[in-house]
Design a protein around this nucleic acid. Structure first.
Lengths: 206, 206, 206, 206
DNA sequence: AGATAACCGAGACGGTACGTCCCGTCTTTTT
DNA sequence: AAAAAGACGGGACGTACCGTCTCGGTTATCT
């Protein structure tokens, strides 16, 4: 079974890779994903097109790795700054969730961040391969932070024992995601606060 | 200011329009959205390219209208069959919601239906114009059905008075949407049943 | 047997064709045949690449037609100027041939003319399709002028009766062609005069 | 003025050189000159590309040397077999020339031999450097054999004294070359016999 | 009834980007 | 130091579509 003679990754040019990541992110931010082209990325990065096609099968994969690289750097920076990579636990679940979701709203409204994230989400909707990478490497790790916080809350008696945290977190995270992705409603701190209240207390009278 | 001399819609060929809708939906289902082209739609519909560009600004708009047309037909068919276009109200909110969501799950897993819907959702993520049309003409009308059912439940005392139904519905609808769009988890009847239970009763101990 | 859906030549753009001819000839003269590219011709002609590929299978074919067009124009111009399209017949075969060959030498040394002619000849050496077009549409018609002059000379008793004019002409035409094409010797009026003398009188003592 | 640090030819790999010659000739015969690439030659020869670029400036030069090498070997083989490297002299010039030209026709029609020879001739038409090498190292030495035979004939009184043998030989050699290179007519023994007769006796009545 | 618009099919056009092939250079490792 | 290997920046290939445009040929009113 003759493979396509995979390239030798030990000889790969680190400089080119970083230039390609930077160019891809910049172009998506500047002209949008659909008008970002492999040719454009190569030109902006000062790189031959083949150098892109040698290492990535499509522009979506380039952007995905660029974004993962960016996230990885941000995480490292945060870690270096001594910040814990987790949702804070003050003992008040509602307050903690509201805090995190407010920060998330702010991030989602940041234009610079939006462009590549939206692009990847859109591509993932239609492209199963990108989707699975996107979910497993970006989305799921973030959701696991909520899982851990909810488990802690469960032990503290703030959440009912039988609840599945992986499903529970979707009650407040998914609505936010949907409003952002589909623009099906406005985002605000008040909105996410409400989500947390509804999710924790339920809709039925108590 | 010379306008682009808008075409006279009274002389429009109904036959061509239907052929274009059919071709667009078929192509998206067969080869996927990105590989569906205006040229391909025109060829398949036996229509000149200009006939498409005369009436729609882009392939996304063609597909959106094709899909709206399809939904419209389905609604008419349902109405003709005497079915009410609303969420049933048996007096048991939880049961009614579970029923509707189970049906939605089945629909979302139908391959034929998925292709154009996913394509539009994806385009909407990245294209604000398509997004607003998609939300206002397709998504929001469906969500309003939930609003009405929840309002009825509120009057029946099954839902707390202060709750905003438009936000409340997102607790169970958005998770389902997210899992489907982002493939961030499996879809099943058990899953949506759980969502309804969690949303109505809340996560906190009662 | 599905053809590649041949384009409709009645709708062909005359302006583009002329621009392509001009660009091709200019580029070959300026940068040489190997560095003349289809892309370059298209750019210089202000034409899409596809417009070239729609009508010609390769750059060699473009150049061939461009050259034929040029020759055709030159012939028309000469005809319009009342010049006869034939080798002159003053009754002195040797003198007439020397005259024509001297003119040919001058033409072959004209840089402007050389570039495309050489390019076509070179392509023909290696490409049978181009070769046959080149010979039948450019070379052979010119050689037929010699055939006619030699036949006249035969009737006038200046050439032996049994001689085949089509072969005879090669005695003085081919050496000139070879020296020019292969640069296997210098070109001059004295050289072609000598060729005519040798060919008419033979090498053996008389 | 830093030179490109010419490689040390004493350390050159003889094995690689031979492999490159063989690969070049084989590829030209198999896929034709234009589709023969340096990369292809290197791969087929099991050699790094740089090894080619170190010793030759272009693929044309590789092929030229490969062909010269081949000719050299053939000459050595002939010499070893006791054959004299000259046109035979039986005292009958016409017969001797006809013999040699008939052998040449057979050689020119040999498919195996044609491919590289044609390729070099074509390259030479358009590339002055290759042309001069080709002429001085391959073509001219062969023509000199005719010069010597004609000089012998001149001394024997079979050729007029004033005749320049270097030009005279072109009367029968160039037509053959032209028909072959330009495919401007069929090759046959009868044809070359006729050429010799015409050239020796001239076209004019005697 | 004839004129005269518009739409319509077809598809050529100037373009942009695709993904591939090679170029000639450079770098790394092996012999 | 030459050689095998092959990544690199670059340029051109030939193809696929884009959105605009022009061309007859049908309708479909409006004189």
């Amino acid at each position: 079974m003759a493979q396509k003679s995979a390239p030798d990754s030990t000889r790969r040019s680190e400089k080119s890779r970083r230039a390609i990541y930077a160019a891809a992110l910049a172009l998506v931010a500047e002209v949008g994903y659909p008008r970002t082209t492999v040719e454009g990325i190569a030109a902006r990065a000062g790189v031959g097109k083949q150098t892109i096609y040698r290492w990535w099968p499509s522009k979506a994969d380039v952007l995905l790795e660029a974004f993962l690289d960016l996230s990885g750097q941000a995480a490292e920076a945060a870690a270096a700054a001594g910040e814990e990579y987790a949702i804070p636990d003050t003992g008040d679940l509602a307050a903690d969730l509201k805090d995190v979701l407010r920060a998330t709203v702010d991030e989602l409204l940041d234009e610079q961040f939006q462009a590549p994230y939206r692009a990847l989400a859109a591509e993932g909707v239609v492209n199963e391969k990108i989707s699975s990478e996107f979910v497993s490497r970006l989305l799921e790790p973030q959701l696991q932070l909520y899982v851990r916080r909810l488990e802690a809350a469960q032990e503290a008696g703030e959440v009912r024992p039988g609840i599945d945290p992986r499903i529970a977190l979707e009650l407040f995270v998914a609505p936010l995601a949907q409003r952002w992705l589909q623009r099906s409603g406005p985002l605000s701190h008040a909105y996410t606060d409400t989500l947390v209240d509804y999710a924790l207390n339920g809709l039925a009278p108590r």
